[in-house]
Simulated scan of single mutants.
Amino acid sequence: MGKVLGIAILLCALIAGAAMYYLQVYHFYEEVTPTGTDDVQLTRLAEAAPEPILYQGFQAIDATSSPIRYRACFTTEMSLATLTETYQIYEDAEPLTAPGWFECFDAEVIGGALEDGSALAFLGQENIQYGIDRVVVVTDDGRGYAWQQINACGEVVFDGNRAPEGCPEPPQGY
């Protein structure tokens, strides 16, 4: 009887583990349907407002379970020189990993390109959702990537503290 019970417990643990893995890596993600016109936006230096840039080959995934699960890949013919003269640079960009099946987005490669200077990070949109910024990275050969990461205001508020000076008031419920 003990062996049967042990095997049953082991089987339940394996099934639960496989289900959790599937849910985290596959189930919650959905492909984003591109609009073809405004999928990639950067925030202008002058107006501090996001505007679409020229891009091709856009593919993205997102999940409603978390605002930081968004990942995107694209290409652009715009040069880094033009982009830096027109759009806001994003300090402290930290690419977040994507599921292995979303092959175009490799956080380690993107992070390495940011470190060695062959890529630059730009502000896509500040507070796309309270405390979350869209970050867009473009490499010197025109490959582009986007993700959402928690900004300084979000870090403080999500920890349960009051919004620091200079941050917008959080919506009700934060």
Rank of each mutant, 00 (worst) to 15 (best):
L80T: 08
A146K: 08
D38M: 04
C104E: 09
A49Q: 14
N161Q: 15
G111V: 05
L23I: 02
I110N: 07
E31H: 11
T33M: 12
D62P: 00
G166Q: 08
V156N: 05
A13K: 03
A121E: 02
C153H: 10
L54A: 14
A121V: 00
M20S: 14
Y174K: 09
V156I: 15
R44F: 01
Y21Q: 12
A13W: 06
Y55N: 01
G124H: 15
G166N: 08
L54M: 08
T43Y: 03
L114C: 12
V4F: 15
E91K: 11
Y55V: 01
V109N: 04
L96K: 15
A93L: 04
V136D: 01
E30M: 07
V4L: 15
P95C: 00
E169R: 14
P52I: 02
A163V: 06
Y22P: 01
L120Y: 12
T86F: 03
Y90G: 05
V4N: 15
F102E: 05
A119Y: 03
D62M: 02
V32L: 14
L5N: 09
L5P: 02
S118I: 02
F158S: 08
E165G: 11
A49G: 01
Y22R: 11
A63W: 02
D141I: 11
M78G: 00
A16G: 09
T37W: 08
T82N: 11
E91N: 10
L5G: 05
H27I: 00
Y29V: 02
M78D: 09
P67M: 09
Y90L: 15
I110H: 05
I68P: 03
G124Q: 10
G124N: 13
A146W: 06
A146G: 11
V40S: 00
C73F: 13
E108N: 11
I89R: 14
G154D: 01
Q59D: 13
Y145D: 06
G124Y: 12
C153T: 05
R143E: 14
E91Y: 06
P170Y: 01
L80D: 01
V156R: 14
P164I: 07
P170K: 01
L14I: 13
G100A: 12
T35I: 04
E115S: 13
S118N: 11
E165W: 12
F122N: 09
I89F: 10
S79Y: 08
